[in-house]
Design a protein around this nucleic acid. Sequence first.
DNA 1: CTGGCTTGTAACAAAATTGTAACCTGAAGG
DNA 2: CCTTCAGGTTACAATTTTGTTACAAGCCAG
Lengths: 235, 235
Amino acid sequence: MPQKTILIVDDETPIRDMLRVALEMADYHCLEAADAQSAHSLIVDRKPDLILLDWMLPGTSGIELARRLKREEVTSQIPVIMLTAKGEEDNKVQGLEVGADDYITKPFSPRELVARLKAVLRRTDNFSDNGPITVEGLTLDPASHRITINDQPVQMGPTEYRLLEFFLTHQERVYTRSQLLDHVWGGNVYVEERTVDVHIRRLRKALQLDGHDRFVQTVRGAGYRFSLKIAASEA
Amino acid sequence: MPQKTILIVDDETPIRDMLRVALEMADYHCLEAADAQSAHSLIVDRKPDLILLDWMLPGTSGIELARRLKREEVTSQIPVIMLTAKGEEDNKVQGLEVGADDYITKPFSPRELVARLKAVLRRTDNFSDNGPITVEGLTLDPASHRITINDQPVQMGPTEYRLLEFFLTHQERVYTRSQLLDHVWGGNVYVEERTVDVHIRRLRKALQLDGHDRFVQTVRGAGYRFSLKIAASEA
DNA sequence: CTGGCTTGTAACAAAATTGTAACCTGAAGG
DNA sequence: CCTTCAGGTTACAATTTTGTTACAAGCCAG
């Protein structure tokens, strides 16, 4: 699962810091903005998965920003969690009406923050629900997370699964090890490129069942490719 | 698909208004009632597809009404979503036990409301008349809340029951711990994800009787799945 | 109020996965 | 024929993930 990006919008630095710490601990990637202006450009630019928006902002208020976001096509799908101070409770209803997905009252525990955030993400998340992919008797079904070769179940690790999923959705094209690390492992990890070789090997082993491992092809000096056509080397 | 009819039961007019606006926007037809009395006659009379029921009502409380509905033959099949104010969270379990299908804490976002409502409708639609579900000798009877394996009664806690019910109505699909918390525990709870593991374990233990625990399968790195087919790992 | 049952968590055990290094193989190019 | 080097294989320890057990707190019937 690729890492989620959260945008923190708050004008108080210590609060931002606290939020960032809590979020990074829970393995989220953070962006920060101190005002509505820069927040907006960050949103358009980086497309965060969720926005943590303080109610009080200098200049344009948080609620104003929220309203604006919900009006724009590109940004209206991004869930928003409002931060409000104690005593501003009336604003909650207003905030939610504007389209915020949840709200949190300061002060709050990091745990609560992360819990709510997860709840919102899991609700708005998913629905990239593609149907099963089948090629030459090899089937990958994202819904059940199952691989079969001619209806025989195939067992492999999570990384191999993601690798195969990527290959199946990007056939007939060569990817360098570096690109594979980006797409399958997720951008900001540091692992040796040769690690890819090992997982390619593991994937091939898993697909051996009916010779289906021949689809995972090596392109010397370039990288790997998933292709139904036979490789030049065995022609 | 014919338009669904939702009955809103709440004594506060502004809340009813807000709900109606949200629901009509999502293309539902609305009925309204301010007290349990008129709610009940509307239900019998108009047969709504779903009831949004406020916890707090003058006279008969919401929960009382819910209990009453679930006892009566005609009305027991209609799904109920409970509305509770923040802080009344403890009541949630009670609400679910009475037979509510979900519950939402005020204040909530219109989007959340509609999302949950859709989820509940979808759930009760597909597996229509709450008849007993049987697979491979394993039977779950919603009416009597009983589980049997080859006619042998099986004992488990309420959470395990709901978990199994969810699995039986959503076979062949992986659910993350997070999603299970959402669907089985109800969205707004905040419990550790590992808690799911423990309940999975309890469910498996209960189903051991005739090896039926093998249907509850672990999908490493993803979550759990209920499937009659064997898992790849034991092939 | 008591005793039994359920529930969420923590803690520990077991198992599977992951990244690396080391070594092996075969092809390309001289 | 030899060298070089990209890629193939294997082994393994660290890390992650899941299984299992124990336990304190909450709830409810009696």
